[in-house]
Simulated scan of single mutants.
Amino acid sequence: MTYTKKEVINIGKSVVKHELEQAMRLYSSISTSFVDAATSLLQCKGKVIISGVGKSGHIGKKIAATLASTGTPSFFVHPTEALHGDLGMIGEADVVIMISNSGSSNELQTMRTLIEVQKITTIVITSNLDSPLARKCDIKLDISTSEEACPLGLAPTSSTTNTLLLGDALALTIMTMRKFDQNDFALSHPAGALGSRLITRIVHLIEDKHQQAFCSPDTELQDAITIMCQTGLGLITIIDNSKHVLGVFTDGDLRRAFAKGCYHKTKMSLLVQRGPLVISSSRLCTEALALMHRHGVTAIPAVDNNSCFTGVINQHTIHRAGIC
């Protein structure tokens, strides 16, 4: 059978619509059991262990990863592996979340029986609150799916979507309750573009050429031009004998100086832009970029805690580090 483009689009839309309808069932079902689960995970002194079979296992791995990256130590244990030795990974201080749409997974039921003797708190995520597994677990979370989006009603679709949504809701609720902030997030995401944005500070990018982009008020214009050519940052900083910033001189200032017919031996004290923007070298590079964009400049001097010049930071240096 051949389908038209419109028919294919309509099939796709009907699947999305069905899953959204099932997600709204989940939205309406969030209740005190969710509070119990969030509180239990927040107060957990050990690790949060997620376990599930098949598609539930795949979703469980994602939930474990989300919990771990938002401040709740967590990892996934496959129930079959648990029954062949990995139960040793689970301790009395842990909380175990079991995911089973039907609530009748034999592996999870066996696993639940074995950890019961340790009095470990167990949470079940299921669509059947009267299932054998749900009856044995301490806290029951209903994913509230009445049917799958699959036209055969067989492939886990709406149930896995709602499980994922419920896992995200738990992780981000606990994250909020824990007051987990951007700095905490950066510690678990140090690599890649995200990590660079969150942890890279100006001081991390300051190299020799950034440190050399300065001159004194008595420096002559021709010598200042040499420094600007050597550093190539679009700006040099004029500092006093104590390394305090007196002002800046930019590529634009150089053009304007020549347009006015300034002599090449003119002292920088006569050309300096006083009262420039400066930023602490301990600030994040993203903050430097925001300051530059706000004021329409491409480079600014960085200073230390004593307001002494440490270097010039510019947009190109920050972008080259993968931060935008």
Rank of each mutant, 00 (worst) to 15 (best):
T113A: 13
S105V: 09
R256Y: 07
V312L: 05
P301V: 03
S188Q: 11
I90A: 07
S196V: 01
Q273H: 09
V16N: 07
I90K: 09
G91V: 01
H293L: 02
Q118G: 00
L277G: 05
I199P: 00
Q211A: 14
I50R: 07
F75V: 07
I90E: 07
I63W: 06
N306Q: 12
H295P: 01
L67M: 10
C324S: 08
E107H: 03
R25F: 12
T231N: 06
P301C: 05
R320P: 00
T160D: 02
L152T: 08
A299T: 03
T4N: 10
F249S: 08
T163W: 06
R256K: 06
C44A: 10
K47E: 09
N101R: 08
N305E: 11
L194I: 03
V53C: 14
V303N: 04
K61R: 14
K243Q: 12
S282N: 04
H293S: 09
T2M: 15
N305D: 12
Q222M: 11
L277W: 03
L235G: 02
E147H: 13
T113K: 15
K6T: 15
T173H: 09
H189C: 04
I300K: 03
G91S: 13
T298K: 12
L254W: 02
I236S: 07
C215W: 04
F76P: 00
G195I: 03
T72W: 12
S146K: 15
F249H: 05
F309E: 02
L205T: 01
P217W: 11
D130N: 15
C308Q: 15
E81T: 05
K265T: 08
Q109P: 00
L170T: 04
L187Y: 04
V245I: 06
A191H: 14
N241D: 12
D208S: 15
A82C: 08
N183A: 12
T250G: 07
D36C: 11
R112K: 08
S28G: 13
K140W: 00
P79T: 03
R201M: 04
C150I: 10
N162H: 10
C137F: 07
R255T: 08
K265N: 12
M1K: 13
E220I: 12
H319R: 10
S100F: 07
A321W: 01
K136S: 14
N183Q: 14
L194W: 04
L284V: 02
A134T: 06
S307C: 01
F75P: 00
C262E: 13
T66R: 08
